[in-house]
Structure formats: structure tokens, C-alpha cells
Design a protein around this nucleic acid. Structure first.
Length: 370
DNA sequence: AAGCAATCCAACCGCCTGATT
DNA sequence: GAATCAGGCGGTTGGATTGCT
């Protein structure tokens, strides 16, 4: 499909905007609205292409833009949403009022990504890097904590393998069921999954009002719920999910699982000071024991210091807290408190998925999450 | 104070998608 | 159905700024 450039580049100015140009653009948009961006520069008397004007407006001149330092809350939201959504900056931006996708992207690339990398976590997958894993293993001789961590890392890796397998199986099944009719977009697939899953007991762990077939949120739940169900009963096909070629949001929900491992790696690389609280909560609590050599119950004490608090596996939030505190010397996750941290933390933070889902729920109905 | 390195961030680029012709 | 257009998105770049030696 051919397409002409958005503008004739000859004679058009590039580079930083001058205050005069800003003023012209601002004045024009305030009076007329932006209308067609392509036509705007000529009407506004600017020697810029429409695309450049649009970018300047959306990333800088728009009156509802908040500038300056990101708050801790914003950082946490970004990390959580990145674990959930991957590099979908515009989607993430819809949950951070007054922040632009460009600003969030820059902030991620310059701050948060580096913080993750520093902790031995792959910022793309939110999983521990191999060197971090081996570092954890190498540290096993140092003492019991490290060897425990390494062993648990292994369990986490096994769990991730099982989960990926589940994803693949789910995709295969949905493809088979839908034949060639399904779309390839994850949005459609998840919506189909949500619609087909409806409010069946398969998704019973989620509030029914969140299972609106048309909502992207329902799709998230359908996927994560379905995954949990499968994990609990690996031999059983995931019922109720149909639709074309489900494509797991690998970098999103997968990441949430990966984050668990990442946290372990971070804990290991941090001298074993990290407390493991997995926020996989809603998923893990469905699988107290996954035999078959994949998940053992030993994972649960690892995820939570108290098995009585298994439902409160608010991992990602804790993980993000750790990230956020890693640069400020916050030692709240040290092992010094004899294991009560998990309970304390659980008291402070309820179900992670609920917070994410609430976050998503609070977004505009046309939020481009999926 | 000077030189260099690291960091930040506005802006650009190319690609994709949906709407229109 | 193909071609075109407009808008949007994510990745990347490069100049400016800051920090370090």
C-alpha cells in the first residue's frame, strides 16, 4: 500500500520549537481547535509539518499536562502497568492523568528500566536474567537463605514453564475451536474469551460485574482466570474460552508471573534480603499444589511468609515498592523481622490484581488497553 | 576551570491501523 | 478490493544539561 509522506519536507522547519512557534500553535488551537493536523500548519502560519505540530501539542503544549518529577505513586503505577501491559505507553498513559505517553516512555527508559536492570531483572520480560539466576545459584554456598532462594527460583521457573505451556495449549485449543474464523488481534480474542467465559465458575474468582463480555477488563480476567484454572487442573482443558487464536498478552500477564521470579532474583542479588511475596495472588491461590513435578507446595511459603495469608499475595506491589526503595536505601524487606513482614505487608496491601483491575476499571471506557 | 562521560528528554522517524475514496 | 489519507504509536536520536574527575 503506497502512501505519501505526511507532508512535503522541503522548506519545513525541524528541531526544537521556538516560543514564537509555540505561541502560534497554541493560539490557533485555542481559537479553532486542531482540526486536520495536516492543514493546520499552513492555517496557523507555521513552517512545520502537521505531525510535528500534533506532537508538540500532545506532548508539550496541551494545557492538561503535568510536568516535573514523577511521584512514587506514579512510579509504582508505571511499573505495575508495564508488567501488565508491556511497552504500551499510550495505554499506560491513560492511567496516569496528565502524563503523556512520551514522558512515561522516557521516564521508563531513563529511570525505571535501569533500576530493574540493576537488580538483575530483564526490564522487557520482568524476569531475572540468566546471570542473576546463576548468581543466585552461586550464592547458595553462602548460607541457607541463598540456597533456599535458589531452590525457590527453580520452582518459580518451573511454574513459569507450566504457565507458558498453558498459554500455548490455550492458544492451540482456541485456534482449533474457532477454525479460521477468528481474528488475530488479542483484543478480539480476549473479548471473545470473556464473552464465551461469561460468568461461569471457571472465572468465579472474579467479581461478576467485571466479566462484562465487551470490556477489555473482562478479557484480562478471562485470560488470567483461565490460566489459573488450567494451572489448578492441568489435565483439564480450559472451558468456556473460545474465539480466534488467543494470543496471550505475554508481555503483560506473563510478565506478572515473571515478576515473581524477578523479585526472587532481586532478593538473591540483593544479598538475600528480599522477602518473597508473590502478587500472582489470584492465580497462585488456585494452585496450592501442582504436582506432576512442576509446582510443589514449597512455593507458597516462598510467596508468602505465612501460608494462612496465601490469598494476600500482593507481589507486584511489593516488588515495585522494592524497586522504588532500592535507590533510597529502604530496608523494609530485610529478613531481620523474623518473617512477619509478609503478614504486615498483606495488611497494608490487598490483592494486587484487584488493584490493577480497579485501576483498569477506573479508566475511560474507551481505554485502549487491548 | 576544563574536559569528559553520563543522563535527560524533546523531537523525529518509520510503521501500523482505521477511515475514506 | 485497492489505493490513499490521517492519526496514532513505539523506537530511536541527538542536543542540552548535569555530574564527575
Amino acid at each position: 500500500m503506497g502512501r505519501s509522506p505526511c507532508c512535503d519536507k522541503v522548506g519545513l522547519k525541524k528541531g526544537p520549537w521556538t516560543p514564537e512557534e509555540d505561541q502560534k500553535l497554541l493560539a490557533y488551537i485555542e481559537e479553532h481547535g486542531h482540526g486536520s493536523w495536516r492543514a493546520l500548519p499552513a492555517k496557523a502560519g507555521l513552517q512545520r509539518c502537521g505531525k510535528s505540530c500534533r506532537l508538540r501539542w500532545t506532548n508539550y503544549l496541551r494545557p492538561d499536562i503535568k510536568r516535573g518529577k514523577f511521584s512514587l505513586q506514579e512510579e509504582q503505577t508505571i511499573i505495575q502497568l508495564h508488567a501488565l501491559l508491556g511497552n504500551r505507553w499510550s495505554a499506560i498513559a491513560t492511567h496516569l492523568p496528565k502524563r503523556t505517553d512520551n514522558e512515561i516512555k522516557n521516564y521508563w527508559n531513563t529511570h525505571l528500566k535501569k533500576r530493574l536492570a540493576k537488580m538483575g531483572i530483564d526490564p522487557v520480560t520482568h524476569k531475572p536474567r540468566n546471570d542473576a539466576l546463576s548468581a543466585a545459584g552461586a550464592g547458595a554456598g553462602d548460607g541457607g537463605e541463598n540456597s533456599k532462594t535458589a531452590a525457590n527460583l527453580s520452582h518459580m521457573a518451573q511454574w513459569e514453564s507450566a504457565r507458558l505451556e498453558a498459554e500455548a495449549r490455550l492458544a492451540r485449543q482456541t485456534r482449533l475451536r474457532s477454525g479460521s474464523g477468528g481474528g488475530s488481534s488479542s483484543a478480539g480474542s480476549f473479548q471473545a474469551a470473556a464473552a464465551a467465559g461469561g460468568e461461569s465458575s471457571e472465572f468465579g474468582s472474579f467479581p461478576s460485574q467485571l466479566m462484562k463480555p465487551s470490556s477489555s477488563l473482562g478479557a484480562v480476567k478471562a485470560w488470567s482466570g483461565g490460566s489459573a484454572v488450567w494451572a489448578a487442573n492441568p489435565s483439564e482443558p480450559i472451558g468456556g474460552i473460545s474465539g480466534g487464536g488467543i494470543e496471550s498478552p505475554t508481555s503483560t500477564l506473563t510478565s506478572a508471573a515473571g515478576v515473581g521470579e524477578s523479585f526472587a532474583a532481586a532478593a538473591a542479588s540483593d544479598g538475600g534480603s528480599g522477602g518473597m511475596m508473590n502478587d500472582e495472588g489470584d492465580r497462585f491461590r488456585h494452585l496450592p499444589e501442582y504436582k506432576d513435578g512442576i509446582i510443589e507446595n514449597s512455593i507458597l511459603p516462598f510467596l508468602s511468609s505465612s501460608s494462612e495469608h496465601v490469598p494476600c499475595l500482593n507481589f507486584v506491589e511489593k516488588f515495585t515498592d522494592l524497586l522504588l526503595s532500592s535507590s533510597s536505601g529502604d530496608r523494609r524487606f530485610s529478613d531481620d523481622d523474623g518473617g512477619s513482614r509478609g503478614e504486615d505487608y498483606c495488611e497494608d496491601n490487598n490483592n494486587y490484581w484487584n488493584s490493577i483491575l480497579n485501576l483498569v476499571n477506573s479508566s475511560p471506557s474507551d481505554s485502549p488497553l487491548f
